[in-house]
Amino acid sequence: MATNREQAAGWTGVGSMPGTNVHEAVRIAVDECSELVFLPELPGRGVTAGMIGRTAALLVGLGVDLQPAGWRLTDASGIDHRRASSLLAEDLDALEEHTQSYEGPLKVQVVGPWTLAAAVERPRGDKVLGDHGARRELAESLAEGLREHVGDVRRRTPDAEIVVQIDEPSLPAVLAGSISTASGFHRHRTIDAPAADQALRWVTDAVRDAGATPVAHVCARDVPIALLAGAGFAACGFDLSYVESGVLDPWAEAFESGVDLWPGVIPTHEPDSPFSDADAVRRLEAFLSALGFGPEQYAGRLTVTPTCGLAGASPSWAGRALAASRKVAAGLAG
């Protein structure tokens, strides 16, 4: 999806930010990413505000609670589930307050069905990933929750174009069969491409049915770009360092098929030596050239981001990283 057809590239944040003050985080997201605002996640407030907790708050028809081993499906919602829902509502209130009359793209982030299945446990223990029926139930619950979530965001920001980023950092490990069982002595079985595609399609279809645009984000090695393109994502975010030296044909094919690219090129932590916008621009131009595309092909189809979330960054670097994303995007315009 294009964020600004007047420029070669847009820019935005991946999602998480440091600190615990949601109004300050939203203000920074609005100020620094004025053409593709995002709703920050603040995991510094605790596990109920983290990426799994926030997504658990969206589930429909399933209860979850926090156990010593992490989030677990339960017969009824527990206090931690209710706390996660309350924090999400507070964050949406802050977003609504700071985006009055905003008319551009606005991004929210949720965890995708495979990373969620690899993180949440069944009622009797071990991951949902190991049970076909539980995986399906979880994915369908997430899809229905996303329909409702997009509707809520639209009511709060009626003039915005809603973008839903589906975070799947565990998807490559799920496909490779490298997710550990609860005992740690074994691995969950590999999930084949058709099964992976089905759950992803439930989510992308739900987002599109709600009138929003689905974007994938995988800040891990071995991004399954062909799978994501086939599942209906409009764009894919990734850490450029994991991709630029690998096999590029699937990326070129995905781009030619209409999937936009959201390369992460800004460090998530302040580097030891000064960050160079010009070097980042050159890296991006070299990557795009290696794909076989010039400025006339990628104009309006790139969105520059940090390599991943900024929760572990210092507050000063978080703001500077978003500003650097803007400068690199502007640099691609020549």
Results as ranks from 00 to 15, higher is better:
298 Y>P: 04
305 T>P: 00
232 G>I: 06
52 I>W: 06
145 G>T: 01
18 P>T: 11
298 Y>E: 03
200 L>R: 04
233 F>C: 13
134 A>N: 08
316 S>H: 13
275 F>S: 05
183 S>M: 02
163 V>S: 05
84 A>C: 04
149 H>Q: 13
309 G>E: 13
223 V>C: 02
151 G>Y: 05
80 D>G: 00
231 A>G: 09
301 R>A: 10
96 E>I: 01
280 A>R: 15
83 R>Y: 01
115 T>F: 00
211 G>E: 06
29 A>G: 04
305 T>F: 03
78 G>Q: 01
245 S>Q: 13
306 P>A: 13
269 H>L: 15
248 L>N: 00
287 F>G: 07
304 V>Y: 08
216 A>F: 02
150 V>K: 09
319 G>L: 10
129 L>Y: 06
293 F>S: 10
136 R>S: 11
153 V>T: 06
152 D>E: 13
90 E>D: 14
270 E>P: 03
145 G>M: 06
18 P>D: 10
279 D>S: 15
321 A>M: 09
184 G>L: 11
284 L>V: 15
246 G>K: 00
28 I>Y: 06
235 A>N: 09
330 A>Q: 08
157 T>V: 14
16 S>H: 05
241 S>C: 07
45 R>K: 13
169 P>L: 14
230 G>T: 07
308 C>K: 11
195 A>Y: 08
100 Q>M: 04
5 R>K: 09
263 P>N: 05
246 G>F: 00
142 L>A: 06
324 A>K: 08
72 R>W: 05
103 E>H: 10
10 G>C: 09
269 H>R: 14
152 D>P: 00
326 R>A: 14
204 T>P: 02
190 T>R: 15
144 E>T: 10
130 G>N: 05
124 R>A: 10
200 L>Y: 05
32 E>V: 13
199 A>E: 15
195 A>E: 15
266 I>G: 05
124 R>W: 05
109 Q>G: 01
226 A>D: 15
127 K>H: 11
93 D>E: 14
146 L>P: 09
161 E>Y: 02
160 A>K: 13
317 W>S: 15
20 T>I: 07
193 A>Q: 15
145 G>D: 07
319 G>M: 05
222 D>L: 01
331 G>W: 04
293 F>V: 12
77 S>F: 03
219 C>V: 00
316 S>V: 12
208 R>Y: 01
176 A>S: 07
140 E>I: 12
77 S>E: 15
97 E>F: 08
171 L>R: 07
67 Q>D: 07
317 W>I: 14
